[in-house]
Nucleic acid binder design. Sequence first.
DNA 1: AAATGATGTGATATTTTCTTACATGAATGA
DNA 2: TCATTCATGTAAGAAAATATCACATCATTT
Lengths: 126, 126
Amino acid sequence: MKEKELRRSLAVLPIGTVMKLANLTARQIRYYEEQDLIHPERNAGNRRMFSLNDVDRLLEIKDYLADGINMAGIKEIYAMQKQKAQQKEADLARPLTDNDVRRILHDEFLNIGGLKAKDGPEYPTH
Amino acid sequence: MKEKELRRSLAVLPIGTVMKLANLTARQIRYYEEQDLIHPERNAGNRRMFSLNDVDRLLEIKDYLADGINMAGIKEIYAMQKQKAQQKEADLARPLTDNDVRRILHDEFLNIGGLKAKDGPEYPTH
DNA sequence: AAATGATGTGATATTTTCTTACATGAATGA
DNA sequence: TCATTCATGTAAGAAAATATCACATCATTT
């Protein structure tokens, strides 16, 4: 479903529509943007244009706030989600080759032997 | 998928967005509305608000025009489609009950006998 | 009590959209 | 060929939507 994802990320909604869909004031929406929780695009005339994904996120933010989580907390949540997504992306991008595996095992054996010169072992040898 | 249908029929897009999505001028879009080919909603401030279905229809209209069909032709096409849809709806809405069938047969027998007083038979008895 | 966080409100500028009217160029029929 | 009609362009002026910025407010935290 790549098509669907594209549709959902198209910036087509003006703030007035988003206010109604998410039941938020313009002030709130702009503030959440200021806090880097959403990143609506801008059209040629500097008007914010939102995607359906943006609306979803606004609804999420609303829920988090209702649960007593503050901006900082929400920001952290999204930062973590982003990290996870990036890790997954990286994992998917280049699955380990046999060569990678061999190299990793080789390095580990070096470490186990305590022979690694430059930085010393990564774990206590006690 | 009633949900999807609802989403597609939500009037959330301003004309500026629709212009880009359908690659049409505001003039064209308003003219097609004037010709009763589309019926965007209006918001409290009298601005036209379009649904994704509206955009689809605009793209269709564009195709028809490109095929050399004029407004009158397109209008007729949509009129026919509407009729078909209404018929289908009517058919689906209330399939005939046994009672309906009995009543219809009863009436038909009356007619066959040529006894129907008021309007006379519905078909030539010749 | 002072500071902070989330939101409301008001002022003013800019952009978008509306309606109305007139212009235009291609196709069509007399 | 000339006048019409059709689909669209364009301009003017008004109204609505949105932008930013500043200050107000009210609850919570320190």
